[in-house]
Design a protein around this nucleic acid. Structure first.
Lengths: 343, 343
DNA sequence: TTGTAAGCGTTATCAT
DNA sequence: ATGATAACGCTTACAA
């Protein structure tokens, strides 16, 4: 008895322990615990009672091996998560909520995203039931091998030109369009754009909206108003200076995203200019930082939490139904007008 | 042959497949792949070659069951992760780095933290090899059952009065002390404190430093200068107004943490007061938001990334050595003097 | 309704 | 150096 009690704390209780305790077979115990129909109510209750008393909890490892799934979803990042803490935190908050509501958990991977090999290793090992990729851009050379692995995956926050791949993306085109129209409505004719071409399709969409909006307003496209940056603070600022130093500088500037806008704001204020009186400024994404600056920055808010949630939900569709067709979702975004454009 | 190829894509390759291919036993394959000494170099190479060719990757589930460990670390939150995105993101960044460097991964749990039952379930199921608790406060009623589970755990970001429990905490006492000395050096005699008593030991430490610093400067403690808040924006602001409305208001205010300080700043500015000329202000934690306000807010910076890293490393010590004694680490913090106190 | 036994893919303990 | 074989703890045909 003393012996039993000691082991009790070290070794987890198994269904075998329960079966011995009750004098029934382990399969009966298993069935009873899983609420199968072919067990008498009486034994079902006895088993559950004893299981409770003994503090039984099924071994995740054993279950995973037998059921060939883990109830875990891998989130693979290939972008640094600090620096975009808002983005990251909101997405994760949405994702864990959706996952846990459905009995799943999120596993974080930050290295696997840096090499296709690591990613495939992860798939083959079946450490998780599916993947959500949080990448700046997912090339076809990654998507194709992934599809062959038959491990469901969803791309988060970006769309991708691949009809077999699933994604949940914000509506970059219409968001940027709304932003442009807002500036055009305010009478701006020369609108600068600090672009981030490395963001691929996100760039394509936002830039297309920029051009289309100009065209819609019959304003000729002026390439000197578009400056590329790599997101580095100093480069964001020098891009801003380039715009300000133009012979005919813009009266409004759109930054590819909020963090660039914050650097641009600093550069503009340093020149002694007033925002928005001398020059209007807008960002994109709706990170909380854009609300804290003085003036607060007009932006386009992504439904980050929802993007996290729906990515997980999409993945769960694949897990529930292996005939599920690719899911491609574009979520509406919202223009947030703040002091930097209408102060 | 065609049959084999089809299965090839659906069913992952196992050591049995490799053994058949080579005409050796599965135990030989296992040994060869695990680099054991009792295998001839020749077969070892053949096995590894074929494994590579067949795209073999060991099944995580099988390995977990057999080895009785998962190489995963659970992060259990009972605090909402949005709103403190900086805090969360930096800690997670540090934690995943440390974990992945050592072949482990992080699993996120946000519900388990809300009920002790869920937490114990998680332990008994052995879903992970150990836990890191990111809680506002971990009561003894949770620590004791956890210790009995013999699942290693580390408390992150807070200390705890329990000599059996491990934690990695910032040095709240000395951080608050440095902050107080800074204000006292500037000549402030009446220093307000917007406190957050629900944070338990964190509150105890920061508040003790507040009192000790006053005592060290021979300034009598005035209870009317300490107002409690629950962290809600409106309550943070009304706490600030209470201080401002005192017959003899403070010339400096310390907020329990940066987010409270940001709300306090807004309240103070709304009164038309100048910071720091009319009233100095400081926060705690070093969240990036405190740098964006105008004026920027003096704060005490926690080494968040390092806290994340060391929590994982501490946990790994327990996994490597089950005789490991409790680890209690207090990390130094850094006073960041900004415009809100020396503007 | 219940029990027996096979199997999930490994690793580890025996023999040989 | 290598091969059977028994676990690890669970689920699920198949028998009884």
């Amino acid at each position: 008895m003393a012996f039993t009690q000691t082991l009790f704390q070290i070794m987890p209780v198994t269904i075998e322990d329960i079966s011995k305790q009750l004098g029934v077979s382990i399969s009966t115990v298993s069935r009873a615990l899983n609420g199968k129909v072919d067990v008498s109510e009486a034994t079902k209750e006895r088993v559950q009672q004893v299981a409770q008393e003994m503090g039984y909890q099924p071994s995740a490892a054993a279950r995973n091996l037998r059921r060939q799934r883990t109830e875990k979803i891998g989130f693979v990042f290939n972008t640094a998560i600090s620096g975009i803490s808002d983005y990251f935190a909101e997405i994760i908050a949405g994702a864990t909520t959706a996952a846990e509501e459905n009995g799943h958990n999120i596993v974080l991977y930050t290295n696997a995203g840096h090499s296709p090999d690591e990613l495939l290793k992860l798939c083959k090992a079946r450490e998780v039931d599916g993947l959500v990729l949080v990448w700046d851009h997912v090339p076809a050379t990654v998507i194709d091998p992934l599809l062959e692995e038959a491990l469901p995956f969803v791309i988060l926050g970006r769309r991708v030109n691949h009809h077999q791949a699933s994604y949940v993306s914000p509506d970059n085109y219409n968001g940027a369009l709304a932003l442009m129209r807002h500036l055009l409505d305010l009478g701006h004719m020369r609108i600068g754009f600090i672009d981030r071409p490395a963001m691929k399709l996100t760039h394509v969409d936002r830039f297309a909206a920029y051009r289309d909006a100009l065209e819609g307003a019959s304003i000729p496209f002026d390439p000197s108003l578009v400056i590329a940056t790599d997101g580095e603070q100093s480069n964001n600022q020098s891009a801003t200076y380039q715009l300000l130093d133009l012979p005919s500088p813009p009266t409004a500037v759109i930054a590819f995203h909020d963090l660039i806008a914050i650097d641009a704001l600093e550069a503009i204020l340093e020149r002694g200019l007033h925002v928005p009186r001398d020059i209007a400024l807008a960002g994109f994404d709706g990170l909380s930082a854009s609300l804290l600056t003085k003036p607060s920055i007009t932006t386009v808010k992504q439904p980050l939490r929802k993007i996290g949630e729906q990515s997980v939900q999409a993945l769960l569709c694949f897990l529930a139904n292996n005939k599920q067709q690719p899911i491609q979702i574009t979520l509406p975004v919202q223009l947030e007008i703040r002091e930097s454009t209408i102060g």
